[in-house]
Every structure is written in C-alpha cells, then in structure tokens.
Design a protein around this nucleic acid. Structure first.
Length: 305
RNA sequence: GGUGCCAUAGCUCAGUAGGUAGAGCACAGGACUGAAAAUCCUGGUGUCCUUGGUUCGAUCCCGAGUGGCACCA
C-alpha cells in the first residue's frame, strides 16, 4: 500500500489540569526549535487569563504560542472552528518545521484536530434558544419523540438522557431540514503524522497541586478578573471553573471561603473527567509527569522515527 | 454544680410505630462529533458514641457513662 505523504509530525502533550503540561511543552518546543499550539477551550479568550492558567510571560516569550488569547468571550469559538483553524495553522507551520507541539487538556478539541469533525452547517441560534426553552419547561419527552421521528439513526446513537444531545440533533434538523446523521461519516482525515503523550500523576499529588494552584490564582487577583467579566456571566465561555463560583460569591449566595473550596472541588472533578477522556487514547504514550528526563528521551525517540 | 437538647457515611443531616439504614456534598467509574472547564449516566461508603438492661431481636425503648451545645447558677 502506498503511504500518503505526511507533511509533518504533530506532537500532542496532554494530561489533566495542573499536571505540568505547559512548562514541559515549552521545554520540548525549545529543544525541537518549533512552535506551540495551545489546545485549550478557555485560554483562547482574551478576557480570561488568571483563571485559565495562561502560560507565564517567560514561557510565551521563549516559544511562539498559537491560539492563546486570540478571541473575545463575545465571539465564542467551538470545537469545529478550533479544529479547522488549527489545521490551517499547521499547514503554515509545517512549511518551516518538521514537528509542531500541541499542548492542552480539552479532549474534544484534541479530537477535532487529530480526527477531524464532520462538516455540519451551523444551526440558527434562535432555534437553539427555542429548543432550550422547551427543555427548561420540562418538555424533554416531547423533544425526544420529535428527534426519534426526524432522525432515528442519531436518536439511537446518543445518550438520550442528555438534553444537550437531543437539542443538538433537533437544532441541526430544524435549521437544515436534513437529519444530523446524514452529515456524519464524511470528515477529512488529517494529512500529518501524530504522536501523543499523556502525562500521569497520582491523584494525591495532582489534587494537592490543584489546591495550590487555586490559592495561587487567588493571590494573582482572580477576584478582580472575575469582577471584570461578571456582566457577561451567562456567556458560554464563562461557564468555567473559577468564575462561576466567584459569581456566586458576588451574588452573596456563598462566602469567599466556600467559593474557593468549590473552585478546588470543581477543578478536581474536571481533572478526573479529563483522565477518563484520555484513557480512550490507546495509541498514546503514558508517562509520569515527574520523570522529565525519561520524557525528553521518549520525545527524541519519537522524532527520530 | 443544675436543667434541657444532641451523638447515624469523610462532612451536613434525615430515618427506623423495635426486624443492622438513607439524602445532598465529597469520593470513585463511565459516556460524550459544533456549549466540552459544558452536559449526562452509574456506584458504594457505616462498630448507627460506649456500656448494662428489657426483648426472639435494640441504632431506635430504659439506666449509667463519655463527649458536644444551650440555658440557669
């Protein structure tokens, strides 16, 4: 069989939040003299910096980073937009580099870049609002029945308990007149090679790093940052750990200590969900986040291939 | 010192007309192709404070002890 010519290698570094991805990626990118693509659904927003743990200035200065603070919370992006933009950017970067480093913990965004995503027309936002209204009114059964009628294939493929999935199927059908399932299976495979490293850290260590990091964010002025975006609290991009809890504090429903504890709890849960997601990447190299020299050795082996 | 109330899951608490227990949170596992730091599903946590008594049987009733809280001195 003829192997299609690959443009270059995308080396993805992932792992749960606070596992040390950022610093490691910078070190690797320096070693390989290449650029970094951030794969983080929240660091793309300019208005959120402290709470999303955007890399420190010294890191950003040392290596060219892409997709960090490039858009506004008022112009939200989604997994599809992200995947397409990254692929465009990679075309450009592979002209100059054999290897590019991608680092981040947003699983769906990683998939969008590596596996691609089917081309589905963007639904009408008003349609979404209308369907959401019905969900809020408790009419989910009605919506499920409707979805079953218009798109039984999709209906049978999703978690029908999850209103988001039901909504998704209906919003596509209602705006395009065509079932969502008919758009599936035509995605564009990537034209570059891929290798992935998943950083691992035992729960105890991970949780204490998370706690420390939250305390550090508070010292850096997370409250002030949250205040500055409070008026936009309903935007999708602000459905984010570290902000929603402080908004509750601003509202007076909880006190500051409770808010901080909640941020820590929710960050822990986020880390756990990330780990669940990463277990699906069975082609990935899994390695302890603490063994830096082993990681660097592994990188060299991967890149020599 | 006296009186009253309380003691049940890691935490906050519910409960059993006496048949060894349950919610929320925490914790753990899972799903996930355009909101993904989102959304959804699943799971169990236990000397029911100690000790004597009543009873076929006590976490529950009675006595004593210990600890906590409140009030009175």
């Amino acid at each position: 069989m003829m192997e299609t010519k690959k443009k270059g290698l995308l080396l993805t570094i992932t792992g749960p939040t606070a596992s040390g991805k950022t610093a490691l990626a910078v070190e690797i990118a320096k070693e390989l003299q290449t650029a970094i693509i951030s794969c983080d659904s929240r660091q793309v927003y300019r208005e959120m910096c402290i709470g999303t743990a955007v890399p420190e200035a010294e890191f950003l200065d040392a290596v060219k980073h892409h997709f960090i603070q490039t858009t506004s919370i008022q112009e939200p992006i989604n997994a599809n937009d992200f995947g397409l933009s990254v692929r465009d950017k990679l075309d450009e970067l592979f002209q100059e580099h054999n290897t590019v480093v991608m680092v981040g913990g947003s699983g769906l965004y990683i998939d969008s870049v590596l596996k691609g995503i089917d081309d589905i027309p963007s639904p009408d936002p008003n349609v979404r609002c209308e369907i959401q209204r019905k969900i809020d009114e408790g009419r989910i059964d009605e919506l499920r029945a409707e979805l079953f009628r218009v798109d039984p294939i999709y209906y049978n493929s999703i978690d029908i308990q999850n209103p988001r999935r039901v909504l998704r199927g209906l919003e596509v059908y209602e705006t395009t007149g065509v079932p969502l399932s008919s758009y599936l299976g035509n995605k564009q495979n990537r034209d570059f090679a891929s290798a992935m490293i998943v950083l691992e850290l035992d729960r105890g260590k991970l949780y204490s790093k998370i706690n420390q990091r939250v305390d550090h964010m508070m010292e850096q002025g997370l409250i002030k940052e949250a205040e500055s975006v409070y008026e936009h609290r309903n935007l999708t991009s602000l459905q984010t750990v570290g902000y929603q809890e402080l908004f509750e504090y601003f509202d007076g429903t909880i006190n500051l200590n409770e808010a901080i504890e909640k941020i820590k709890n929710n960050t822990r849960q986020y880390a756990r969900k990330q780990e669940t997601w990463f277990r699906r990447y069975d082609e990935a190299f899994r390695i302890s986040a603490l063994e830096k020299s082993r990681i660097m050795k592994l990188i060299k082996e991967i890149c020599w291939k």
